[in-house]
Design a protein around this nucleic acid. Structure first.
Length: 413
DNA sequence: AGCCTTTGACCAGCG
DNA sequence: TCGCTGGTCAAAGGC
């Protein structure tokens, strides 16, 4: 488990065409990319990873924090830490690592919350990272988005490989981390004054809830083939190899009675979770004792208890809280912004029908930037990622064909 | 004993 | 209409 072959060299961040990246920043009044969104582009997925490493993974994964810190040269890192410290003190704004980047055009355009986190990265870690991309100064105060993007890009290019050299942060589940990062992102967005952010919709619980499902994608890198512990209980009910992907996609249902939430977990070739798609909304609370059982991150529980707001929190605690609250906001983002997918369309009652399309679109766009990711499809600002629920696997299937491991990802371009 | 995973088969949507 | 693909079901087995 610890010795997973080093991932192949990752390509430097290639900023998406203007429509993707720049449009986000320059767009007048349009949704601004969240920290994670930005980060996603900076963490290109390693398509080449092999499925065989399914259970190994951890070594290749790195916590967001680690990645972020590692992505800088020592001097740079130090300086950035210092800068971040100064910037961050005041606002407690969400902090993103250097890896932040712009979501793919489709995602951005649709407003769906797509967050790409490199394998093993912990969003929370990202937030904590000294290299914080979205410090107030950068995100909305002293630095323009374009500048921030440029900086991030530059940073990423400095040490693309190092970002992946770290071990995954054990305390947080990938999903949880993702969600946390997302929430944090939203927080920062608010604080930075980004207009028209999904946050707005996130706050609108009722509207979002009633709207069709929103799809949320998170790129997370989990070292194990099972989805990260998001606090919920899941049952695997199927597995299939989807076309274009070497590794099977696993289908999970929330084990809670009558809970409609499902999630799909795709693995990278190296066995790490490359993509997690949450669908639906939990109609119940997270199992309280889930954490105790796992002995794993208390973040979920803590967040659960205090996820009402992240604003009043500080430090790591706040990050953790952000993790769980984030999913909700993320949902909101999706709902509000994910117009293209029809989530917010009044006419599209049957979001189910559109799910496949939506999914395809999102996935395509995601893969262009990076591989590992978590996708959440939810009806609203649910805390899907927040999972404290249980999921049980009740099926698995291998779909015909995908013979070629090496290809998949990233080649959407 | 209960829960979960695995696995093959079935069904529905789409081109 | 057919084939392909994704998603789900349900039996069997394991923990």
């Amino acid at each position: 488990m610890s010795a997973r072959p080093p991932p192949p060299p990752r390509p430097h961040l290639a900023l998406p065409p203007r429509s993707a990246a720049e449009s986000l920043f320059t767009g007048a009044g349009d949704a601004s990319p969240g920290p994670l969104t930005l980060a996603s582009a900076l963490f290109p997925s390693h398509a080449d990873a092999g499925c065989g490493g399914a259970s190994s993974g951890a070594s290749g994964a790195a916590s967001f924090t680690q990645l972020l810190t590692g992505s800088f040269a020592p001097q740079q890192q130090q300086q950035r830490q210092h800068e971040a410290a100064e910037r961050g003190r005041g606002g407690g704004v969400a902090r993103a690592g250097p890896a932040l980047s712009v979501a793919p055009p489709a995602s951005a355009a649709s407003g769906a919350s797509v967050f790409t986190v490199p394998p093993g990265l912990s969003p929370s870690g990202l937030l904590d990272s000294p290299g914080l991309l979205f410090s107030p100064a950068m995100g909305g105060f002293g630095m323009s988005h374009q500048q921030a993007l440029a900086q991030v890009t530059a940073q990423a290019s400095h040490s693309p490989l190092r970002m992946f050299d770290h071990i995954e942060q054990p305390s947080f589940s990938a999903a949880a981390a993702s969600s946390g990062a997302l929430q944090h992102m939203n927080s920062s967005a608010n604080m930075t004054g980004m207009p028209d952010m999904a946050i707005t919709t996130a706050n609108n619980d009722n509207a979002s809830l009633q709207s069709a499902e929103a799809s949320q994608r998170y790129q997370v890198n989990a070292p194990v083939d099972k989805p990260a512990d998001d606090g919920y209980n899941w049952r695997k009910y199927g597995q299939k190899v989807v076309k274009g992907s070497d590794c099977p996609r696993s289908y999970y249902k929330c084990t809670h009675p009558n809970c409609p939430v499902k999630k799909k977990v795709e693995h990278a070739e190296d066995g790490q979770i490359s993509e997690i798609i949450y669908k639906g909304k939990h109609n119940h609370q997270r199992p309280p004792n889930k954490r105790a059982k796992d002995g794993n991150s208390s973040a979920a529980d803590q967040n659960d208890q205090s996820n009402d707001t992240t604003s009043g929190l500080s430090g790591a605690k706040r990050d953790q809280d952000a993790i769980y609250g984030m999913s909700e906001q993320v949902s909101g983002l999706s709902d509000g912004d994910d117009m293209d997918d029809g989530e917010s369309r009044p006419h599209e009652a049957d979001d189910a029908d559109n799910e496949s399309k939506r999914r395809n679109i999102q996935i395509s766009s995601q893969r262009t930037l990076s591989e590992p990711k978590i996708i959440v499809q939810t009806t609203s600002e649910v805390d899907l990622l927040d999972d404290g629920y249980r999921w049980r696997k009740y099926g698995q299937k291998v779909v015909k064909g995908n013979p070629h491991p090496s290809m998949l990802v990233g080649n959407a371009f």
